[in-house]
Simulated scan of single mutants.
Amino acid sequence: MIRIVPKPTDTPDDNSTGAVIQELERAGAQYGVLDLGAIDPLDSGLENELIWVCGIRQDGHQFETLSVLALDNQVINTPESIVTCASKVMTSALLIQNGVRTPRTAYLRSETQANDFLSRHGKVVYKPLYGYDGNGIRLVTEPAELGPGPWYLQEYVKNDRDFRVFVLGGEAVGAITRVSDSLMHNIHQGGIGMPVTIDEEMRAIAEASASAIGIDYCGVDLLRDAEGYTVLEVNGTPNWHCMAAPIPKLLAAYLIEHERGMRA
């Protein structure tokens, strides 16, 4: 049976979990919904099950519960990869370590170092370390705008759109561009999404990003600059708004395949 941890931000009009459940039902797969807040992971009774995490709350309890469940079960995405994607610093570190293009980035507590980084780049983008949906992201042009540290800062790359590539099982299977007239192009921040064809450069950098993180599926967010694509971040519990590719069907098939593999 496939055990499903629903995305806590699902709504009737934007139900990522429900879209995949519909595809599981069409395929005749057995599934059950798992409430992480209603089980003791040290005495869960779950063993050799496939647990699909559509989304979790960013709190210690859910991370710890998943980590314990992963000892005796296969969890997709793994707790480690979800935690990595939740931390912009760790994501950046792994991208850099694996030679994946990403904007120049710094994580600083020293105000002097933060001011020097800002001075070198002229404009930088401040991002909350564990932010989501574009919340809290802002452009900084003066030291007084930095606010309290520590600071996760990226060089500003001029753009009017970004790209999200959905990678599943190491393969880029769908992509959109998100267009807006503001700094953030996230759909939750008012960006307009539309499907785009995955070109070979986009495919290569998105698949390399997923490999660097070590994740089953993800949304890789890209900008395009004078040298090509550069990776902003990797989302371990992504939505798939506006994609032409049938992501829920593909994801359901991926889960079914892995669950059957555990029984073989």
Rank of each mutant, 00 (worst) to 15 (best):
I2A: 06
D10R: 04
D10E: 01
D10H: 03
D14W: 15
G18T: 03
L24V: 05
L24T: 04
D43K: 07
D43L: 05
N48M: 02
W52V: 05
V53P: 01
V53S: 02
R57M: 00
G60R: 00
V68Y: 00
D72E: 14
N73H: 01
Q74A: 08
I76L: 14
N77R: 00
N77V: 00
T78C: 06
V89C: 13
M90G: 09
T91I: 12
A93M: 14
I96P: 09
Q97D: 15
G99H: 14
E111H: 13
T112D: 13
Q113L: 14
A114I: 04
S119C: 10
G134D: 07
N135G: 05
A144T: 13
E145V: 07
E145R: 11
L146C: 11
P148D: 15
G149A: 06
W151I: 10
L153A: 07
V157Q: 03
K158Y: 03
D160R: 09
D162N: 07
R164P: 09
G169S: 13
E171D: 15
V179F: 13
V179Q: 15
N186Q: 11
I187Q: 05
G191N: 06
I192T: 13
M194A: 13
V196I: 09
T197E: 13
D199W: 09
D199F: 10
E201G: 12
I205L: 02
A206M: 03
A208F: 02
A210D: 05
L223G: 09
V231S: 10
V231D: 13
L232D: 08
G236Y: 00
N239G: 12
N239R: 08
M243T: 07
A252Y: 10
L255T: 10
H258S: 06
A264I: 01
